[in-house]
Design a binder for these strands. Structure first.
Lengths: 164, 164
DNA sequence: TCTGAAATACCCACTAC
DNA sequence: GTAGTGGGTATTTCAGA
């Protein structure tokens, strides 16, 4: 169970995981060891999934983000499993969801430019048989964060959503 | 300028930033110091933007992802600036793009459930005047990674996209 | 002169108390 | 929560291309 202190620790770590444990402890009003033990527990429980480096998209030459809406008429489990496996393997696909409503699947893809998108698209449809596809491009990334909101965390003291 | 070794270092770090420098060096065929210097440089240059902890969405009670397409008839710079500022401040909004085509803006929002989405939606439209909004929900997250594809990186040796 | 290997001092993560 | 240790990291020095 996550309490308020855990939540503050998570908030710090998902913003910057290089902050030393002693400093985190200081900020949340804990000494190093208990703070460190909480972090360990959060990692064991899988609340903290991993620690990663976030790269600059422009520096690695993926300046264009595209959203691909896929509608299909094939809905059996076998087909879906194969479809998902194939698409997951493309490194350009950074997000992939099965949707409710008219669109069946939504992909977020990152590539250098429209030309590269076209090449990617051809590779995609050559590997898998999909009926209806529509793509929209992001002109500007206004916000894109790995930080999840923590105001909905169920704390041990209360079951109500708590404001940050 | 990024070379092949840098690319391998980035690949390791964006998958797991806890790997010790000596181990990274071993994997890319470098001793600790030059490897460490490369990482420093990549951070200085902003290729590595930050190091963060990735949290488990279910553990922090945000199981539902929604995509909100916003169409507006207001296109002046003032309005956009205000609009962007307001929306950015919602922690539930994890992604926010200005789009090309019919839809003007696309938001990705994470919340605990449909009920919470509704509450969020009401708060959103109370703060800002938007004409046309449509929401689709993700039923299943098949892939969601912070790892960018590195096969498009422009290396010092070649300007061609290089296969991983 | 630039790049990499070896060596050291220091600081932080982690353990025992 | 405090004290102490091992290990990784930051930094310097040195060797070689």
């Amino acid at each position: 169970m996550i309490d308020r202190i855990d939540r503050r620790i998570l908030s710090i770590l998902q913003e910057d995981s290089t902050v030393p444990v002693a400093e985190i402890g200081r900020r949340v009003g804990l000494s190093t060891t208990p703070c460190w033990r909480r972090i360990q527990k959060l990692e064991e429980e899988g609340v903290i999934k991993r620690r990663v480096a976030i790269l600059d998209a422009r520096s690695v030459n993926v300046k264009v983000a595209a959203f691909i809406s896929i509608t299909t008429n094939q809905h059996n489990a076998d087909w879906l499993a194969k479809f998902a496996d194939v698409i997951k393997e493309f490194p350009e696909v950074v997000e992939f969801y099965r949707m409710a409503g008219k669109v069946d699947y939504l992909l977020k893809v990152v590539v250098p430019d429209i030309e590269a998108y076209d090449a990617f698209y051809k590779r995609l449809i050559s590997k898998i048989d999909i009926s209806d596809v529509s793509t929209t491009f992001a002109m500007e990334e206004i916000k894109n964060t790995s930080q999840l909101p923590l105001n909905y965390v169920v704390t041990e003291k209360t079951r109500d959503p708590v404001k940050e």
